[in-house]
């Protein structure tokens, strides 16, 4: 049961909000939202939060957006579709943050942090402490 702090949410309020894991570790931002039209043809339902450069890039628009999207597509193993966080994994939503449940599977957003840690930080002396 996700606890929404306020009833009528708007997409504007949800976009670019910071996402935290259950233990408070920042995972990324709400780069985009995914809606699915239910089979009976009603209004599209909010089903997932999208993160990562391939979601973030197109919103920039123009050449910059394209390059960011291209970087995202090449780097992330999931290809051109961004990291997807189903709404079932969301524990709390409010104007300031989105907190995921304990059970939330590790997201794709860790990949960049892990890559930086392995390849750069740990190579520097004293970096791995």
């Amino acid at each position: 049961m996700a606890e929404w702090e306020w009833e009528a949410a708007t997409v504007d309020q949800l976009l670019d909000v910071q996402i935290y894991a259950a233990d408070g570790e920042p995972l990324g931002k709400v780069d985009d939202l995914e809606f699915t039209t239910p089979s009976d043809g009603g209004a599209p339902v909010l089903t997932a939060i999208l993160c990562g450069p391939s979601a973030f890039g197109p919103r920039l628009g123009g050449l910059v957006g394209l390059t960011v999207w291209a970087i995202g597509r090449r780097l992330s193993p999931t290809g051109s579709d961004p990291v997807r966080v189903p709404m079932t994994q969301v524990d709390r939503v409010n104007r300031r943050e989105i907190r995921l449940r304990e059970s939330a599977r590790p997201l794709g957003t860790h990949r960049f942090a892990d890559w930086t840690r392995e390849h750069i930080v740990c190579q520097i002396p004293g970096g791995s402490r």
Binding site: M1, A2, W4, A8, A9, F35, T36, P38, G42, A43, P44, V45, L46, T47, A48, P86, M87, T88, Q89, V90
Partner: peptide
């Protein structure tokens, strides 16, 4: 809205 597989309990739809 009617919750779907991924939408979680208070499902929000486009109003």
């Amino acid at each position: 809205a009617r919750p779907t597989r991924d939408s979680g309990e208070p499902a929000y739809a486009m109003g």
